[in-house]
Design a protein around this nucleic acid. Structure first.
Lengths: 140, 140
DNA sequence: CAGTATCCACCGCGATACTG
DNA sequence: CAGTATCGCGGTGGATACTG
């Protein structure tokens, strides 16, 4: 990657300092729950890898496509796809065929989320967090 | 808030479509875990509310400050603060006094994360997700 | 004040087996 | 093929009580 694609850390921090004011404008209390919930969903097993798979792929993916690539149990994959669909991040289309065929695709909302991930990657690179430590386990 | 502060949804989507290429540049496989872990931590109880409290506040906060404002059990707050500190998002400074005093402050890394939240709020507003539904519970 | 220790209920997740 | 049903384990978090 070309280094000057990264944001200037100082600028990032400065921009961060205006976070408080922006939040007021957006109505913090109402949406705070919302964002927490989003992180909860996206923090669940395979949510991000699934979304990432769609971002790497042109066109729809089927249940078995994902199952093959991610080494995830059908139980968990089923739940995750349902949640992501219900949350408006994926669409689900099933065809009345034998054998049955179901196709999933990311919504515009999911694609619109991509800049967030880009920022996250930039941030992770700039501050070099989690390189070694991972997330501390709650029961340590 | 002034409406033209929002990104043009089309531009956001278009930018999102280049996500795949950016990921390649950043070395996707290595950092994918990292970002998943970050979401896991931030999805835990009171992680975002705690961070938000710091972003709303000038200067440090003490354990009881947070306890008073968030209605969180000391057990959970203790764990969350430890994790956020270990993850490099908060600093912890304890003074040898009686009664003991401990102050927490967000790091530059935490402040640098703010643009991500801003993006998230913009995104949530544009796509109006989770307005009614919340995160589907896994056991429904 | 700033936590920790203990106990416990619930939830998330995988393995396995089964179905339309 | 695209799931669901069931089971079991471990992780997560609250209540309560206690400590340096």
């Amino acid at each position: 990657m070309s280094g000057d694609e990264f944001p200037d850390p100082e600028a990032v921090i400065e921009r961060g300092r205006r976070y408080r004011d922006r939040l007021d404008e957006y109505g913090e209390n109402q949406q705070k729950e919302t964002v927490t919930e989003l992180f909860t969903l996206l923090g669940r097993a395979y949510a991000l890898p699934v979304l990432h798979l769609f971002s790497m792929n042109e066109g729809p993916l089927r249940f078995s496509d994902i199952e093959d690539r991610l080494d995830v149990s059908p139980t968990t994959l089923s739940k995750r796809l349902s949640e992501l669909t219900e949350a408006g991040l994926l669409t689900r289309r099933s065809y009345d065929e034998i054998p049955p065929r179901v196709e999933y695709e990311p919504t515009d909302a999911a694609n619109g989320l991509a800049p967030v991930f880009i920022h996250l990657y930039e941030w992770a690179s700039v501050y070099d967090l989690y390189g070694e430590i991972g997330v501390p386990n709650e029961n340590d």
